[in-house]
Amino acid sequence: MSLLMIGPLVITLVNSFQTVSYGVPGQFIGFTNYLSTLGDQRFWSAAGFTVVYTVAMTAGKIVGGYALGLMLNAVRAKARSFFLGLLLVPYVVPTVIGALVFSWLFNSTFGGLVNVLLQPLGIAPDWFTDPAAAKGLLVFHSIWHESAFGVLVLVAALQSVPRERIEAAALDGAGWWQTQWQIVIPSIKGFIGFIALISIMDGFRVFDSVRMITPAAASVGTESLMTYVYNVALGETQQLGLASAINVITILAILVCLIPFIRQTWREIKTA
C-alpha cells in the first residue's frame, strides 16, 4: 500500500515543481506550475463546478438516503432485503456503463424515456448542451448511482436508535418531525458525517460520469477538476508537471473540506 499510494504521491509532488513532458527528463521551475494553475480561469471554472457538484450530490445522497432508509426501516426484514438488493443494482454497475445507460434515458436517439414522459408537460431541455440541464443531469446520476451506499449505512443506523427514546418522545407529545430532528438525527449524526465524508471525496474526483454523459464538458461548463487534469496531462497539452500541480492543489482542497468530518469522527472514536 505504501508503494501504491505514497510513491505516486511523492512523484506527483516532485513533478509539480518541474516542467515534464513524455520521454524527457523534468526540469525544476519552482512554483511556476502553481502560479499558472491559480491564474488559469479554466481551473477556477472546473473547481467551481466540482464544488457545486459535490455539495449538491452530497446533500441529495443524505436527504434521499435518509428518506429511503426511513421507508425501508418500516417494512419487514425480508422485504427490506429485497428492496435493498434492488437499490444496490445501480451501485454495483461500473460507473462508465451506468453513466452511459443512464444518459440514454435522456437521449432521444436511444429512446429517451424521460423525454417521452416530460413531453406532455411541455418540458424539453437539451440535457447535453444546456449548461444548467447538463449539471443537473450529472448530479442526478450521482444520486441515482451512489445513494444505495448511503441507504445501506442509514438503514443500519436507524435500527441502532433506541426504541425507548422514540416511544418516550411520543408519550411526551412530540410529533413525527420533532422526533426526527431531536431524537433520530442526533443519534445517527456520526453515520451521516461518514456518508458526507465519503461523498465529498467521490465528488472531488468525479471523472467517469462527466466523460460519458458530457464529452464536451469544457464547452458545456461541466468540466471537473479530474477531467481538467486529464486534458492537461493526456489530452491537449500533455504537460505532466502542470497536471501534477493541479492534483496537489486538489488534494489540499479535499483535505480542507474533510477536516470538520474527520474531527467529528475522531471525537466519536475517543468517546466511544
Rank of each mutant, 00 (worst) to 15 (best):
L70Q: 10
D126M: 09
M71N: 09
V92H: 12
F110S: 04
V51Y: 02
L100P: 01
A157V: 03
L72G: 02
L88E: 00
A169Q: 00
A74V: 06
N115T: 00
S108T: 15
A132N: 08
V153K: 00
A59Q: 00
P90E: 01
A134G: 04
R80M: 06
A170P: 06
A132Y: 10
F102T: 06
M57T: 11
L68Y: 02
V101H: 10
V151Q: 02
L171A: 12
V153Q: 05
E167Y: 12
V51I: 14
A132C: 05
T109V: 12
S147N: 13
A168H: 09
S160V: 02
G65S: 06
D126L: 14
E146N: 13
G136A: 07
G60I: 01
N73Q: 08
A168N: 07
F128L: 12
I166T: 13
I62Q: 04
A67N: 02
V52H: 07
F102H: 03
H145G: 07
E146G: 11
L137D: 01
W177Q: 12
P162V: 02
P120I: 06
F149Y: 14
A79I: 12
A79W: 15
V151I: 15
S147V: 15
V63S: 03
R76Q: 13
V153H: 03
L68H: 05
W144I: 07
S160K: 00
G98A: 14
G98Y: 00
T50Y: 03
A124G: 14
A168R: 09
Q119D: 15
K135P: 06
W127T: 05
L171R: 10
L171D: 09
W176L: 15
A174L: 05
A99H: 05
Q178H: 06
S142G: 14
L113G: 11
A169R: 05
W104R: 09
V151C: 04
P90A: 04
I166D: 08
Y66C: 07
G136V: 00
S142R: 12
S142K: 09
S108M: 07
V153M: 10
W177M: 09
P131N: 05
I123S: 07
W144V: 03
A168K: 09
L118A: 11
V161A: 01
I143Q: 04
P120Y: 08
G85E: 07
V155A: 04
K61H: 13
A99G: 04
K78Y: 14
A99I: 02
P120D: 02
A79F: 13
G60N: 02
L158T: 03
G150F: 03
Y66M: 08
L171C: 13
V96G: 11
M57Y: 14
R80C: 06
V52A: 14
G112A: 04
E167N: 14
A132W: 04
L113D: 06
N115I: 06
L87M: 11
G175V: 01
K61P: 03
Y66N: 02
N107Q: 09
A169S: 15
L105S: 08
A148M: 04
Q159P: 04
G64Y: 07
